[in-house]
Lab assay of single mutants.
Amino acid sequence: SSEEQMCGTHRETKKIFCEVDRSLLCLLCSSSQEHRYHRHRPIEWAA
């Protein structure tokens, strides 16, 4: 659903897949302290 594609923290669309956590992130989350050094892919890659 579209609600699942929205970041609850930043209200941004989740467009990035974190390979380490195997989760979807928004651009702001992907550059956060928690995920900054993880490997990321565009969401299309994970589909």
Rank of each mutant, 00 (worst) to 15 (best):
S1W: 02
S1R: 04
S1N: 15
S1Y: 08
S1A: 05
S2L: 09
S2T: 10
S2H: 09
S2P: 12
S2M: 05
E3V: 07
E3G: 10
E4H: 07
E4W: 04
E4L: 08
Q5I: 08
Q5L: 12
Q5D: 14
Q5E: 03
Q5H: 07
Q5W: 05
M6S: 04
M6N: 00
M6C: 04
C7A: 00
C7M: 02
C7L: 02
C7V: 02
G8I: 11
G8W: 09
G8C: 12
G8H: 05
G8S: 11
T9W: 07
T9F: 05
T9I: 11
T9L: 14
T9K: 15
T9N: 06
T9H: 10
H10P: 04
H10Q: 02
H10S: 03
H10W: 00
R11Y: 00
R11V: 04
R11I: 06
R11L: 06
R11D: 09
R11S: 09
R11K: 13
E12T: 13
E12Y: 11
E12V: 11
T13F: 09
T13Y: 08
T13I: 13
T13V: 12
K14L: 08
K15I: 07
K15Y: 10
K15N: 15
K15L: 07
K15E: 13
K15D: 04
K15S: 10
K15T: 10
I16E: 05
I16Q: 05
I16K: 09
I16F: 07
I16L: 06
F17T: 05
F17E: 05
F17N: 02
C18W: 00
C18V: 00
C18N: 08
C18D: 02
C18P: 01
C18M: 02
E19M: 03
E19K: 03
E19C: 08
E19W: 03
E19P: 12
E19T: 04
V20K: 14
V20Y: 12
V20D: 14
V20Q: 13
D21R: 10
D21L: 04
D21W: 09
R22Y: 05
R22F: 01
R22N: 13
R22E: 15
R22I: 03
R22G: 14
R22V: 04
R22W: 04
R22Q: 14
S23G: 07
S23W: 00
S23C: 11
L24G: 08
L24N: 09
L24I: 03
L24Y: 11
L24H: 07
L25A: 03
L25C: 09
L25E: 03
L25P: 00
L25S: 06
C26G: 02
C26Y: 00
C26M: 00
C26W: 00
L27M: 15
L27I: 11
L27E: 15
L27T: 14
L28Y: 13
L28V: 15
L28M: 13
L28G: 10
L28D: 10
C29S: 00
C29E: 03
C29T: 01
C29P: 02
C29W: 01
C29A: 02
S30A: 15
S30E: 10
S30I: 05
S30G: 07
S31N: 14
S31Q: 10
S31T: 07
S31W: 13
S31K: 08
S31I: 11
S32Q: 10
S32K: 05
S32V: 07
S32D: 12
Q33M: 08
Q33A: 10
Q33I: 15
E34P: 01
E34F: 02
E34V: 05
H35K: 00
H35T: 00
H35V: 00
H35G: 01
H35S: 03
H35N: 02
H35R: 01
H35E: 00
H35A: 03
R36L: 10
R36H: 13
R36T: 13
R36N: 12
R36G: 05
R36V: 09
Y37M: 13
Y37G: 14
Y37V: 08
Y37A: 15
Y37T: 13
H38L: 00
H38A: 04
H38T: 03
H38V: 01
H38I: 00
R39F: 07
R39I: 14
R39Q: 13
R39A: 11
H40V: 05
H40C: 03
H40E: 05
H40F: 02
H40T: 01
H40P: 01
R41M: 06
R41T: 07
R41V: 03
P42M: 06
P42H: 08
P42R: 09
P42W: 02
P42L: 07
I43H: 04
I43M: 06
I43E: 15
E44D: 11
E44V: 03
E44W: 03
E44R: 04
E44N: 11
E44M: 05
E44F: 01
W45G: 15
W45T: 15
W45L: 14
W45D: 15
W45H: 15
A46P: 15
A46I: 01
A46L: 12
A46Q: 11
A46G: 13
A47D: 15
A47L: 05
A47W: 10
